[in-house]
Amino acid sequence: MDTILIINGPNLDMLGTRQPEVYGYDTLADVEALCQRIAKDEGVAIDFRQSDSEAEIMGWIKKGRGTTAGLILNPAGFTSTSIAILDALLIYERPIIEVHISPLFRRDEFRHLSYPSKAASAKIEGFGIRGYEFALRKLAEWARG
């Protein structure tokens, strides 16, 4: 069974309580439950992770290289700051979909720049946690060929 790696960046463990006017009231556990349901529907497995550590995220991306069928990445606060995560993504060699819960283009201008986008196959933003569903269904489709 193909496995899709899902990595969530800094502060996403605070979903549901952190700025609900921006991110909504769904928690990271809700995101994971949604992804588990979609993965079952699509016949894939998921490896769901969250970290506030840039180094840990980079390590997971590198370990997923060659062992996972695709990657969903919500880089959160590392979106406009981490060239190191971009470099790890560039060696991943599988489809990558960047997901953001809120629409970056409507937020602070410094959030408009996305380093991970330079390595992503696609980017989904502004659909709340449903963006994960869209991304997971597409990666599952790509994994099936």
Results as ranks from 00 to 15, higher is better:
31 V>W: 12
13 D>I: 10
5 L>Q: 05
94 R>K: 14
33 A>Y: 15
104 L>K: 08
79 T>P: 01
139 L>A: 05
138 K>Q: 15
118 K>T: 07
85 I>H: 08
104 L>V: 14
101 I>Q: 00
109 E>Q: 14
28 L>A: 12
27 T>M: 11
100 H>V: 08
135 A>N: 06
76 A>S: 05
126 G>E: 05
110 F>L: 02
78 F>H: 04
3 T>W: 09
113 L>R: 07
47 D>V: 12
58 M>C: 15
125 E>N: 05
30 D>F: 04
143 A>V: 05
127 F>W: 03
16 G>V: 10
42 E>R: 10
52 D>Y: 00
51 S>V: 00
139 L>V: 00
140 A>M: 03
110 F>E: 13
71 L>Y: 08
51 S>P: 03
25 Y>E: 15
3 T>Q: 03
129 I>A: 09
6 I>S: 02
98 E>D: 01
97 I>E: 01
21 E>C: 06
16 G>W: 11
59 G>E: 08
9 G>D: 01
42 E>N: 13
27 T>K: 08
68 T>R: 14
75 P>R: 10
123 K>Q: 11
128 G>S: 01
58 M>V: 15
110 F>W: 08
13 D>L: 00
55 A>R: 15
144 R>W: 11
113 L>E: 09
35 C>M: 01
139 L>I: 10
107 R>Y: 15
140 A>Q: 07
85 I>A: 04
24 G>H: 07
115 Y>M: 11
24 G>Q: 07
97 I>K: 12
73 L>Q: 07
28 L>W: 01
14 M>F: 10
136 L>Y: 04
73 L>D: 01
121 S>L: 04
79 T>W: 03
19 Q>M: 05
80 S>Y: 14
28 L>R: 07
64 G>S: 09
141 E>P: 11
29 A>H: 12
106 R>V: 05
85 I>K: 10
143 A>C: 02
73 L>P: 02
117 S>L: 13
117 S>A: 07
24 G>D: 02
65 R>N: 07
8 N>C: 07
96 I>N: 06
46 I>L: 12
114 S>Y: 06
94 R>V: 01
45 A>T: 14
82 S>M: 02
141 E>V: 08
20 P>R: 13
88 A>I: 04
123 K>A: 08
36 Q>K: 13
137 R>L: 00
142 W>L: 07
7 I>K: 13
116 P>M: 05
52 D>K: 14
21 E>Y: 01
80 S>I: 01
4 I>V: 00
79 T>H: 09
32 E>W: 13
99 V>M: 04
14 M>Q: 14
57 I>C: 10
125 E>L: 06
81 T>G: 12
141 E>W: 15
65 R>P: 10
104 L>F: 13
97 I>M: 10
126 G>H: 03
12 L>S: 04
49 R>C: 01
90 L>G: 14
65 R>Q: 13
118 K>C: 12
6 I>K: 03
144 R>A: 02
46 I>N: 12
135 A>K: 05
104 L>Y: 09
98 E>A: 11
67 T>R: 13
135 A>M: 11
102 S>E: 06
30 D>A: 15
92 Y>T: 08
92 Y>R: 11
5 L>I: 06
108 D>N: 14
109 E>D: 12
49 R>N: 14
3 T>P: 02
